[in-house]
Amino acid sequence: MKTLFIVRHAKSSWEYEGIKDIDRPLKKRGIEDAYLISKVLQKKIETPSVFVSSCANRALHTAMIFSYSFNYPLANLKISKSLYSFSDGYLIKTVKALDNGFDSAIIFSHDHGISDFVNKFGNIAIHHVPTCGVVAIEFNTKHWKNIKDGKTLFTEFPKYYK
């Protein structure tokens, strides 16, 4: 069995002129949501075996907050340039390339790729994964490269707690 937790980065800010998209920071609401959802998740699941984040500032900051809540060493956080994409193709490649020694993984990335991925591999239709939304999918396989037809275990969205 392999379990994947996919997290869309928390709410980011558009208010800075001249800043590149990859450098956009989290808004105050995004930071608050990341602490909220990471604490909810930390009480619900065991610490995932590996944390992998897009290299975008907003995804990295979200991953750092989750790492803090889970007591996961920041030095072990894996950063992926290829996850800074808005298609599910890079997300699929990233997941399928995970080390089989990891039984669970948490990945911090971007929409539209996330919504496409969870609908392609999960068994529950999810119209739109909101910022700081988490979708858990379980796969009946021993090898990440063989993922298909997963079972959506749960979703955690900030709106559930507000």
Rank of each mutant, 00 (worst) to 15 (best):
T3R: 15
L4V: 06
F5D: 01
F5N: 07
V7P: 05
R8I: 07
R8F: 09
H9S: 12
H9K: 10
H9I: 07
A10C: 09
S12Q: 07
S12E: 03
W14E: 08
E15A: 13
Y16L: 14
G18I: 11
G18T: 08
K20Y: 06
K20A: 13
D21F: 11
I22W: 08
D23E: 15
D23G: 10
R24A: 01
R24S: 03
P25K: 02
L26D: 01
K27Q: 13
R29I: 12
R29G: 00
R29K: 14
G30E: 04
G30M: 09
I31R: 12
I31W: 02
I31T: 12
E32C: 11
D33P: 12
D33G: 14
A34S: 15
A34W: 02
Y35I: 10
L36F: 06
I37C: 11
I37A: 10
I37M: 15
S38I: 13
S38W: 05
V40N: 09
V40R: 15
L41I: 15
Q42H: 10
K43Q: 13
K43P: 02
K43L: 12
K43F: 03
K44I: 06
K44W: 08
I45G: 09
E46G: 13
E46N: 14
E46P: 05
T47I: 11
P48T: 02
S49H: 02
S49Q: 02
V50T: 06
V50E: 01
V52G: 08
S53H: 00
S53P: 01
S53N: 02
S53I: 00
S54E: 02
S54W: 01
S54L: 09
S54V: 09
S54M: 06
A56Q: 07
N57G: 06
R58V: 00
A59T: 00
A59K: 04
A59V: 06
L60P: 03
H61S: 10
H61I: 12
H61Q: 11
H61K: 13
T62M: 14
T62S: 14
T62Q: 11
T62L: 08
T62G: 11
M64C: 04
F66P: 02
S67G: 14
S67E: 00
S67N: 03
S67M: 03
Y68S: 13
S69P: 04
F70P: 07
F70S: 04
N71H: 10
N71E: 12
Y72A: 10
Y72W: 06
L74D: 01
L74M: 12
A75Q: 08
N76F: 04
N76A: 11
N76P: 02
L77Y: 00
L77D: 00
K78W: 06
K78N: 04
K78F: 05
I79C: 03
I79T: 12
K81D: 13
K81C: 05
S82Q: 09
S85R: 05
S85V: 03
